[in-house]
Nucleic acid binder design. Structure first.
Lengths: 343, 343
DNA sequence: TTGTAAGCGTTATCAA
DNA sequence: TTGATAACGCTTACAA
């Protein structure tokens, strides 16, 4: 069923049918009813591509999972509980507002053109970016082009005026500060921090929170106690193993992600260290792996963030004047049996 | 950049540009290079809506999460580890083949027209249905209309000739049989089965597997030991609690899903029953909750199923002649410390 | 090998 | 309040 056939059957022109399907006010009830009865009888649905081509907005949000990979054949989201959570939550909240979600994985810089393409084609009316490094210039460009975007864990760059972007972050400095302080309050002094990929926005904040807690407690900051994990389990595992082999002493670890915390736990176990008897540990994100392995973690409230990303983006898309802004979702410390107290 | 502008800049006609972007063979290398250099210089990307409108296929798969809800405001996928897993896995495998995934939640029968719409509009070139009841007539209609679909856990109806559908199932009867047999081999005779929604295809098979193991062991089947759970945690919780209050004796539970097993565990704990000392338990799906709560489960290999769903569907979409068929993914019993042995 | 022009199914402009 | 018609950006006969 095409609009022409409906028009013919209803005895009106295509423009009238179009006015009806678009809920325009300038069509009298009588005409509307006549058209609607034909539409309902034949189950007519307007073709979305044709609509898009004339400039109408499509009720579809783009969800871009960004993780640049050295080896492109790696599965990136399959093993990441964090990404799975976010995808499911975004789909859920978008659906509640009657929006579909078009999900695209972006594993290298060039693939960002897929996002540009979807915006330019109007396949999507707004986009959510998850996992993107802070330095991705392309995303600045999307903002300049007037595309509506929402970013999870990206920091607003004070230099570039991002007017169309929504920023959703956790309070990374505070979360890291509290985790470190908790360890200190339990008597720990030699605390390792496993940091993530420096190009991602939360990384530096979490380091700063860690440092702040140390300095408040007058514990000297030691460079050797900061090790790299790149937000990946394997890398954290290797580097913690190295640390132990180098016989660097530490009594606790604060890892900037649960994945890295889990890598550390594997290394500790392999080296015969017990948790929390020999080493105490706190992770970040509070994904299900923290519950599973029963270690403490800073809860990042993924569902709440997805809720804000989706609903603020839809607000922005629907009220074209709305000024986009920043949101901070509070993080909370979930304590489990992974911390030893020294008196 | 539109095709016209590219054509003008390259000094050719729009049809030639179109031939180049569609990789047609009847354009000499020289012309192709000339056109490509302009395309690359200006970063031209063909408009997908315009392409779809002329009848071209869109490299997008529809993923439909189907769960009919009494209360439409319930979140359905947010709390379901099973659905989150499947979504992430489908997105992952589709992306590997350079397909996007358009995810739609379907919470009532009427909403199935969204799927029809996407097919009719050619927004998607194929659809994956997860969670659909076996009796959904609309899906039969999609098949008749020639839409390419892949179904997770739906049974091929011998009466209706589904020629365009791909069926992916686990071996439900065998999985249930082995779980029940394992309990019997450990000396259990009074085994409760918590069954799922009868309209979903795996439910009856799992009941049959349970019955088969009982009859093989010459244990009489007792109707009172089969209780309803509707694949929902809460319902299983309530019905197990009732069973205990009615003082029905049982020493083990085989639940048709991990969610229901977890509901049962909560009820047991509340009633002061220890696992496995008082009651042994096996679930189904082997989601992360089974690992977390350390109970045994029949592993349904969600990743493997997603892999088959996506790749067989793409095969079917790309080679138009290919006959769709059925796939069985083997299930395996994961034993954890949730089973007591009687001698 | 290449170009012209019709057509895909809508919406928007303009005139009536 | 309604209807003709151009336009959206592409593909594809058909013609050259």
């Amino acid at each position: 069923m095409k609009i022409r056939e409906i028009a013919k059957l209803a005895g009106v022109s295509v423009s009238t049918v179009s006015r009806v399907t678009n809920n325009y006010t300038n069509v009298p009830k009588e005409t509307r009813d006549k058209v609607m009865s034909v539409i309902n009888k034949y189950g007519y649905i307007a073709n979305s591509s044709a609509r898009i081509l004339t400039g109408k907005q499509n009720k579809t949000l783009g969800l871009f999972i960004v993780e640049f990979l050295d080896n492109p054949s790696n599965n990136i989201i399959l093993p990441s509980i964090w990404f799975s959570n976010i995808i499911a939550a975004v789909v859920n909240y978008a659906s509640a507002k009657n929006y579909n979600t078009l999900v695209t994985l972006i594993t290298n810089k060039k693939a960002l053109k897929k996002a540009k393409e979807q915006f330019a084609n109007k396949s999507i009316c707004g986009g959510i970016f998850v996992g993107a490094e802070n330095t991705v210039e392309e995303i600045n460009e999307f903002d300049r082009l007037g595309y509506k975007i929402a970013l999870l864990e990206q920091k607003k760059d004070e230099n570039s005026s991002r007017n169309n972007s929504i920023f959703v972050n956790t309070d990374n400095t505070k979360g890291a500060y509290e985790a470190t302080k908790y360890l200190i309050d339990n008597g720990h002094k030699k605390i390792v921090h496993i940091m993530g990929n420096k190009k991602k926005s939360p990384t530096l904040d979490r380091i700063n929170g860690y440092k702040k807690a140390l300095s408040e407690a007058k514990i000297p900051f030691e460079k050797t106690l900061i090790i790299k994990g790149e937000y990946q389990q394997n890398i954290a595992y290797e580097n913690v193993k190295n640390l132990i082999e180098e016989e660097v002493f530490f009594s606790a670890i604060f890892a900037a992600s649960d994945d890295m915390a889990f890598g550390a736990i594997k290394a500790l176990r392999e080296k015969g260290k017990r948790i929390p008897d020999d080493v105490s540990i706190i992770g970040y994100d509070d994904t299900i792996i923290a519950k599973l392995e029963n270690f403490s973690s800073v809860k990042a409230h993924a569902d709440d963030m997805a809720d804000i990303l989706v609903n603020q983006l839809i607000n922005c898309v629907e009220n074209k004047n709305k000024i986009a802004s920043s949101y901070i979702v509070e993080s909370t410390l979930e304590i489990r049996n992974s911390i030893k107290k020294y008196d």
